[in-house]
Amino acid sequence: MQTFHWALVPLLFVLNASYGVSQGKPAAPPRTHAVTLGPGKSVPFTPPEADAANRREETVTVRVRALFVDTRQREWTMGEAHDVTDRSFVVRRALRINDRLPGEAADRWVWQPGPWLLVDRVTGRIAVVRLPDFDPVVSDVVWFRDFGAYCGVGGRGGLVAVVAQIGGRKAVAQKQIGSWPQANHFIPVCKAAVWERGPMRVTMQATGGEASTFAVVGTAAIVEEGDGGDEN
């Protein structure tokens, strides 16, 4: 017994020593970031569909806010942010685009709505949300959980109602609800989508058109024909 006891002690020492070498120093905790939206400021915005002769009269004011990660400004944003989880949110990017024509001497900077961004409060990572058939002019996304409902423009033309999920490669549900482009279309093109929690479903309609309701089951959605509620 004594021989076994003393033979075990060096073995344990060797194992402990090798374990310490393989482990090295304890891993440093991941760095956390401070993600904030700055105060809003008013900027002029001219809708892309504004008549060329009346662009000045049709110019309106919108509010934009700077998106900061730590103390560095990363983007300009517009509209309200939507919390997806307790650590991530989506917000729409605001683009400042040079509207100068070839041959013009001075730059003309204009504001336009851009894509949606997914922001991680812990890592500070910012990624563009890929939304099928999203159109900056037509699409006004209404979020619920990690799903977005909006009107879009199909790849072959046509106005489509779309339900998309963050991270999905294609739409959860899609249905053509009108023609596009339209010479004299309503503004907004579609009414705001209306979500319901239980059962989870969403109703969408083109302004002046019939409503369509989509029942969302897991990551799939079923169009409920004729269950659209108010059609006006």
Rank of each mutant, 00 (worst) to 15 (best):
M1E: 11
Q2E: 13
W6I: 15
W6S: 13
A7E: 10
L8H: 04
V9A: 14
L12N: 01
L12Q: 02
A17Y: 14
S18R: 03
V21I: 15
S22E: 08
S22N: 08
S22W: 13
G24P: 02
T32N: 07
H33F: 05
T36L: 09
P39W: 06
G40Q: 08
G40V: 01
V43H: 06
V43T: 10
T46C: 15
P48H: 08
A50R: 01
A53L: 13
N54S: 07
E58A: 15
E58M: 15
T59E: 14
V60K: 15
V60A: 15
T61C: 08
T61A: 14
V62L: 14
R63Y: 11
V64M: 00
R65M: 11
L67C: 13
F68P: 07
T71Q: 14
E75R: 14
E75D: 11
E75T: 10
W76C: 00
M78K: 00
G79S: 13
G79L: 08
A81T: 10
D83T: 07
R87Y: 09
R87P: 02
F89H: 05
R92P: 13
R93Y: 00
R96C: 04
R96K: 12
I97S: 04
N98G: 08
N98P: 02
N98Y: 07
D99S: 11
L101R: 08
P102F: 10
E104N: 00
A105P: 01
A106N: 13
A106G: 05
D107H: 12
D107Y: 05
V110I: 14
W111F: 13
W116V: 03
L118F: 02
D120A: 08
D120P: 09
R121F: 11
R121S: 14
V122S: 05
R125Y: 05
R125I: 14
I126P: 10
V128F: 00
V129H: 01
R130C: 02
R130M: 05
L131S: 05
P132A: 10
P132S: 13
D133L: 15
D135G: 12
V138G: 01
S139T: 09
V141G: 02
V142H: 04
W143V: 12
R145A: 14
R145Y: 05
V153W: 05
G154K: 11
G155R: 07
G157T: 09
G158I: 14
A161M: 09
V162P: 07
G167H: 02
G168R: 06
R169F: 09
V172A: 09
V172C: 00
I177N: 01
I177C: 03
I177V: 15
G178Y: 09
W180K: 10
P181D: 01
P181C: 10
P181L: 03
Q182K: 12
H185Y: 10
F186Q: 13
P188V: 05
C190Q: 04
A192K: 12
A193R: 04
E196N: 06
R197K: 12
P199K: 04
M200W: 00
V202Y: 03
T203I: 10
M204D: 04
M204F: 04
M204R: 06
Q205C: 08
Q205G: 11
A206S: 13
G208C: 04
G209N: 03
G209D: 06
E210W: 07
S212H: 12
T219Q: 12
T219I: 07
T219C: 01
A220Y: 07
V223R: 11
E224T: 02
E225M: 12
E225W: 03
G226N: 03
G228K: 04
G228E: 05
E231K: 13
